[in-house]
Design a binder for these strands. Structure first.
Ligand SMILES: [Zn+2]
Ligand SMILES: [Zn+2]
Ligand SMILES: [Zn+2]
Ligand SMILES: [Zn+2]
Lengths: 171, 171
DNA sequence: GGTCATTTTGTTACATTATAACGTGACGTG
DNA sequence: CACGTCACGTTATAATGTAACAAAATGACC
């Protein structure tokens, strides 16, 4: 395809802007999770909520043991398994993604829909953009199809440098 | 370099055929590695060769500690770090890929060229096909570009069922 | 051959990530 | 309240990956 102007919307909203109101991100994520759990009859227990909040602490992925540390700071130190169990629940519900290339976890930006996400991961600042790119998915489906391979899922994690960090590097 | 992605038609040779002469795969991989190391002034030492051979034992990825076990069976039991060091060397030389979604390693099918591979991983038999699909790469590059993201590398690992296993399931 | 720098390997110890097994408590249903 | 299920706590362990430093092998040079 073409180079498709950088001036559509100035940048394709994949990465959250630096300095955005992140409290809003967290609040939205939590309230969406509450709502969806209510709908689904799933139980968003205290530890699950805490883990979800910690995962949403930033747009960079966080490791399970980092979550554990943060929980310890706020009073309790659960066993690792407790964190993993909470993360398993959150992933089942689609509230959290796992980045295989980092062994780390990330809040999902649209937990209401079943989806296969792709990720842009900034090597410099660590922040991640979640994508749902149909061209990538189509290309994968097409190639798999030609090989007679039935696709069940995929891991697409793209490393590089995010727009903000590129600007910073230029300076 | 190879224009391997287009118009191979009809079941694109991505997966090796069941019952192919795999000794040939191993022999080719080893002799290619020898040749490339000679060209490059790199040293394909004994343990590196052994690890490469073990990685090529099948078209399924193998874990570092599985390699360790196999080495132990054949006499020596090196420390884990020795295996990881050999794997690091082999990855630097482009003889081996690592599958992030499996924490496992796989022989590279075309070690002579610098490339970013994608992988089809069969959940059923474990075998893996290595791809170099330009449409996938282009879709990634395009999407990243539109986000102002500079791509440095990617992990594309597609899970599902390979042609042979699909046939077997149908029966 | 002898010196020397570099690379490779050995050895020991440790770090990080993730799960197993099993008991107890919380919750909803009838 | 009795029952079944789900969630959680506790303990131990598995699986994967590295750090640090010493010893040995290699190759270039004189
Ligand atoms: Zn935010
Ligand atoms: Zn960045
Ligand atoms: Zn083969
Ligand atoms: Zn298969």
């Amino acid at each position: 395809m073409t180079k498709s102007t950088r001036s559509d919307t100035k940048s394709d909203a994949a990465f959250p802007r630096r300095g955005h109101d992140h409290h809003r991100c967290v609040a939205d994520a939590l309230s969406q999770a509450e709502a969806l759990c209510a709908q689904r009859g799933a139980r968003l227990t205290e530890i699950r909520k805490q883990v979800l909040a910690l995962v949403w602490e930033s747009h960079a992925p966080i490791g399970a043991y980092q979550i554990l540390e943060k929980l310890a700071e706020s009073g309790k130190r659960p066993a690792p398994i407790a964190v993993y169990r909470a993360l398993d629940f959150l992933m089942e519900q689609g509230f959290v993604h796992r980045l295989a290339s980092r062994n780390a976890f990330l809040g999902c930006g649209h937990p209401d829909t079943n989806h296969q996400a792709q990720f842009l991961i900034c090597d410099s600042c660590g922040s991640v953009a979640e994508l749902a790119d149909s061209r990538i998915v189509d290309a994968i489906a097409d190639r798999a199809g030609r090989s007679g391979f039935a696709v069940a899922g995929h891991v697409v994690e793209i490393q590089g440098t995010c727009p903000d960090c590129r600007k910073a590097a230029h300076a």
